[in-house]
């Protein structure tokens, strides 16, 4: 999320914490698409993903009081979205595991023609990475985790996580360049 949008999102969560319900509309506009994309990737169904996002907003409203100002509001929201989607799978007796590859298969007719081309190129480039590299990219760019948090998730040391993430980023950029040349 670009810094100016993140700042705006953090301000909206702070307003929500003070009881301003209209902040929810702003949060939906700023983060709704990304929450929906993540939910759709995890529950693998558009209607279910909408239910998950709906439930997320309930949780966000209830938990706004516990949000620590000065921390990353986007990562907070995405973590709620991720946990809610996994809970949804558990409730519906489906395996509650994240299929990261499904999170990287979002392109459909909801995308405009121009965006669809870009999205397909990114998906193609991601598919060329190793599973481990895709996971690191997912944690960093989809969930907005910090390197320290990624280290905690993957069981790596912080320096190893930073090193591996850098390698995954270079591999992805390489694949994106290759894709452009091939066009």
């Amino acid at each position: 999320m670009p810094p100016e949008e993140l700042e705006q999102l953090n301000r909206l969560i702070a307003a929500l914490k003070r009881g301003d319900g209209s902040a929810l509309d702003g949060i939906l506009l700023l983060a709704g698409r990304r929450m929906f994309a993540l939910a759709r990737g995890i529950v693998r169904n558009t209607a279910d993903a909408e239910d998950v996002v709906q439930e997320c907003f309930l949780k966000i409203a209830r938990a706004a009081g516990s949000f620590r100002e000065g921390t990353n509001g986007y990562a907070w929201i995405m973590r709620i979205a991720r946990n809610t989607a996994l809970d949804f799978l558990r409730r519906n007796k489906r395996t509650a595991t994240e299929d990261i590859d499904a999170c990287f298969r979002l392109t459909d007719d909801r995308y405009s023609a121009e965006r669809r081309e870009e999205a397909l190129a990114l998906e193609e480039a991601l598919s060329k990475l190793t599973e481990g590299e895709r996971r690191l990219i997912y944690l960093r760019y989809y969930l907005d985790l910090t390197v320290r948090e990624i280290a905690g998730e993957t069981g790596m040391s912080k320096s190893a996580a930073a090193r591996e993430l850098k390698k995954a980023e270079e591999a992805l950029k390489g694949e994106l360049r290759m894709g452009q040349k091939g066009e």
Partner: peptide, 22 residues
């Protein structure tokens, strides 16, 4: 990623329940 995850439509979400919960 901005363009990728932000590429689709906004989900259909009714925020009235969330506002009441707040």
């Amino acid at each position: 990623f901005e363009r990728y995850t932000g590429g689709g439509d906004l989900p259909q979400v009714d925020l009235s329940a969330a506002k009441a919960a707040l």
